[in-house]
Nucleic acid binder design. Structure first.
Lengths: 333, 333
DNA sequence: CGGTAACATGTTATCGATAACAATTTGCAG
DNA sequence: CTGCAAATTGTTATCGATAACATGTTACCG
């Protein structure tokens, strides 16, 4: 392979200094229009390619924003990523993505790796981190946004909603239907912090509305999905009819429960109600449609991008953006 | 913010030269074990963070592999990404991800941006690219892998399967059931090249087995998903019963069609068969389970990672890895 | 105890672009 | 023309890590 073409080569060919080339290629107005076009033409004819590594090093600006998600194999997080990605695209800033698999220890490693790339900002999912992670982030003094949550003790900015509060309308809706015996299906381990908060929100709301203590059903380690929802329901068998309403930590889980119930010949919503969370496609398309909570995943991403834009403009105090959540009535309860 | 801690600072604190620190942190055996641990301890106590930008610049190796996917909001591509990502993780190489939204023009822009970051290899989905994209890639002389496809005229290496051939067992299976009038549901525009190949594979197989020409139904622009499958079926209404087998370009589409059919009171598979593609969770969990084709998305990612590992070891001629695809019988036909 | 191989550490120059400052050229009023 | 501000271009030093080469130190043999 031929040696790389650098600004020095372009400069030599045009007969100017490398500095002028640098300025010209960045469309610096102080370089005369004539020189600029000449430089650009020469650059492209020589096959010059801008070296972002060098710039990143010299300016200490990587042009990256680091993003961590629990999983990308989740339509909601993927939506958030897309919203963020599309909204960032015009700025030329690239996203450096990592998945934590719902494990804070993994998040710590991941963030360490990402920080080594000098990101200009850090976007993380949720408000639960190891102490080391918190220390690492804060000692860097870079803009941080926690999303999908509104932590009590935020690291910096946050864009999200209260997962606990979002369950209140669900429980109220079930109460209004006269449901008596509730259950909540979620993950066993502590990995899914947002799921845990939903569960706690449901428990508190149920207590407040005078329900007997609700049963907490364990669908396995996070991330729980269709398969676990279905698997749990199979294990329960017809005992599932003990309950007349099952709240699920997410729509896929709800869909798994729903499918298994129908396989057993149970009638939803007559025998029991099933609710999900997240307004996934599967909830809207399944027959019957699943009652769920819309959390506008894509808008979270867009809001994060918009906030990042403002943060790059100038420093500002900690922002807290609540995108809200709302009940979407389906046919399952 | 405090000034960044560099190797120089660590060196000073320990009382050695920066070079020794550099070696120690890379676990170079030539540094004595004692010195190494002392350096590492000091580094971590000073809060030293490795600066990849500097290394990337000095060594001209970015530590990146660039990856393009049509969409990350697709469980199969997400699986591939995860397989790739996990398998690459021990190497310390990071993935730089971009989504093309099923548009070759967008792919061109994206690849241009990604190449400016000096990736050490490029992994793209599919074998259809603009001429400019092909030129750009080939002039760089970096390892390229096309995945999810086995192009006739590959850019470099490929890891995937024949989307056309994968449809053959589906059509044969429907023939064996005595189905008569087939349809294929796919995207209208040319965006989804793999979907197009599946359609062509189905058409050819049907022709070979003596079926009358099969109907090609248009579910809208790629990516087609549950909603489009359901929408198309609603539009068709009871006319859908013209067919006794509907092959869908993917499982989500099939699920949309299935749900709508059941909403209309049609019996699947008695009135008509429905098949999907991709072995998504929804196919295995839905009731009835959807007959589909497994393409081991995660294994594609793992194979790509494994191939990358070998490519970094030493150059080799163009590799072509066929991961195959197999029919998964469900209850919908 | 001298000598040499094996081991351990240090020095110097450099990757390519650009900030900060310096110098030169141009344009135009007087 | 002269002079001086504005416009344009150039010079130098530098970001942090590391390859290549150089030097110092230890261990062990005869």
């Amino acid at each position: 392979m031929v040696a790389r073409v650098t600004m020095r080569d372009v400069a030599q060919a045009v007969g100017v200094s490398p500095m002028t080339v640098s300025r010209a290629l960045r469309d610096d107005e102080t370089v005369s229009a004539k020189t600029r076009t000449r430089i650009k033409e020469t650059a492209s004819s020589l096959g010059y390619v801008y070296d972002i590594s060098a710039t990143a090093f010299r300016t200490q600006k990587s042009g990256f924003v680091a993003v961590t998600l629990p999983s990308i194999n989740n339509a909601n997080f993927a939506h958030t990523y897309r919203g963020l990605s599309e909204a960032m695209s015009p700025s030329g800033i690239q996203l450096l993505l990592g998945a934590t698999n719902y494990e804070v220890a993994r998040e710590e490693n991941l963030i360490r790796q990402l920080l080594a790339r000098n990101p200009e900002a850090l976007v993380v999912t949720g408000g639960h981190h190891t102490d080391a992670t918190r220390a690492m982030i804060q000692s860097r003094g870079l803009p941080v946004i926690e999303m999908w949550d509104l932590p009590k003790d935020p690291l910096g900015h946050s864009v999200g909603f209260s997962n606990a509060d979002a369950m209140v309308p669900v429980v109220e809706h079930l109460a209004a239907q006269g449901r008596q015996k509730l259950a909540f299906v979620g993950a066993s381990n502590g990995g899914d912090a947002r799921g845990r908060e939903r569960r706690e929100g449901a428990v508190l709301a149920a207590r407040r509305l005078g329900f007997p203590e609700i049963d907490l059903l364990d669908a396995g380690p996070a991330p729980v999905s269709m398969r676990q929802g279905a698997g749990l329901t199979q294990e329960l068998g017809r005992d599932v009819a003990r309950y007349d309403a099952i709240m699920c930590v997410s729509d896929p889980v709800a869909f798994g429960v729903l499918s298994e119930c129908r396989r057993m010949g149970l009638s939803v919503p007559d025998d029991l109600a099933i609710t999900g969370f997240g307004h996934f496609d599967v909830a809207a398309i399944s027959h019957p449609r699943i009652t769920t909570v819309d959390v506008s995943a894509e808008r979270i991403g867009q809001n994060v991008a918009e906030l990042l834009g403002r943060l790059f403009e100038g420093d500002m105090g900690p922002q807290r953006i609540d995108v809200g959540a709302r009940l979407i009535l389906g046919e399952t309860g």
